[in-house]
Design a protein around this nucleic acid. Structure first.
Lengths: 216, 216
DNA sequence: AACAGCGTAACATCATGATGTGATTGTTAA
DNA sequence: TTAACAATCACATCATGATGTTACGCTGTT
């Protein structure tokens, strides 16, 4: 790691909070926060003049340009700046818009000063800090899926049959499935026969395709 | 919160690791880990008998059914169980498959025991624990955007070979593919040989699975 | 001109998959 | 207590898939 102090910028319109964070960061060995800004416009001004921070702590709810729009702009121009969103919002829309726009992390504002410091360290090490509540939303979003499938068409497969399907999807042969499930190959055949009947197919390939299309 | 101890289950094929975690969790006030399992199959057996854990710590790399497949099965049947994936993999595919399959958290295995305990607490409070490195990958994925899929893992398949793959995914036999493409069945065989070589697989099933996972 | 890669094709051989028939055990619901 | 169904296993047979080897014409590159 370079021993040069990392430059941190803060964009936050509440002066008290801003100065508090700024002071705290300046007490750290390895970071320096020269500038605090009350708006994205101000920050951009300074960056255009060549004063490039390594990491930006950005509030979402700002006067003028929003933090999210600001981030898009900044990421567009200076793509290697890391930006951590700092906000009171739990709102999923804001969170996902931020992440999509390229945020490196997303912290809730009740985060303590040491935690903010830790978050910055995490980003410097290539990680992404996230409050657990935020992570939960992200994951829920994933689970819900991008195009989330309405219903899982049950197909009435039994436990055992589903396990067989899993084996097929994993690309296993009957023999390997039999070994994995500790049953005979003829039993595997029997199950597969029943699966074919229930799914109205007649080849391994179709079962795999159906399964991976979420039609099982 | 209820004052009843939360039931934790562990699925991990390394007995040492499993027992270590189990012991540690049992030393906690508010959690109990009665059962450790070496495979998803074993866990499912016990769950089927009505022994329902609140949270499952699940290794990804297991004998028999993989942790990801296992999670899909479990989430399908018992959707309100929380599952935390525990793994050595940084591999993006595994991570996203886990999250999509409904994992409540994703920890790397070097995670310390107290951190695992904290992770469980986080889940119980409705959050989602995530190692910073994992969070980073998730965010990067988001930044890539939901609509665009830039990673078309090329695999270097030729036009003709891709047509063959389409045929396979459609569930066609060699003969049917030959007819559709108006070539001989031996040519289909030849193409498929080359496809297998390029994709490092050795069955129709694997090609179909890869293709439908967007890995081609 | 020589080389490499693609698309085409044939022949052979063994492994695997698909399907029919039939049977035993246990659990569950009518 | 039947009847239905899940899960287990066996034997048989034919179709399909996997893999090795070899070969020819075409195209683009060195």
């Amino acid at each position: 790691m370079s021993d040069k102090k990392k430059q941190i910028a803060i964009v936050e319109d509440n002066v008290k909070i801003r100065d508090l964070i700024k002071q705290y960061l300046n007490m750290q060995e390895d970071m320096e926060c020269r500038n605090g800004f009350s708006s994205v416009e101000n920050l951009l001004q300074v960056m255009k003049e060549g004063d490039m921070p390594d990491i930006i702590l950005m509030d979402i709810d700002l006067e003028g340009m929003s933090g999210i729009d600001g981030m898009k702009l900044i990421k567009g121009k200076y793509s290697d700046v890391e930006i951590i969103m700092l906000t009171v919002y739990h709102d999923s829309h804001k969170i996902f818009n931020s992440l999509r726009a390229g945020a490196s992390g997303y912290l809730l504002k009740h985060t303590s000063l040491p935690e903010i410091k830790d978050a910055i360290d995490v980003v410097l090490q290539g990680g992404a800090p996230m409050s657990p509540q935020i992570a939960r939303k992200v994951i829920t979003h994933f689970s819900g899926g991008p195009s989330d499938e309405p219903e899982k068409a049950d197909s009435g497969l039994t436990m055992r049959e589903q396990e067989i399907v899993v084996g097929l999807v994993d690309g296993l042969s009957y023999k390997m499935i039999a070994d994995r499930m500790d049953i005979s190959i003829d039993t595997v055949r029997a199950h597969i026969r029943n699966i074919y009947k229930k799914l109205h197919v007649n080849s391994k390939a179709e079962v795999i395709a159906k399964s991976l299309r979420g039609e099982i």
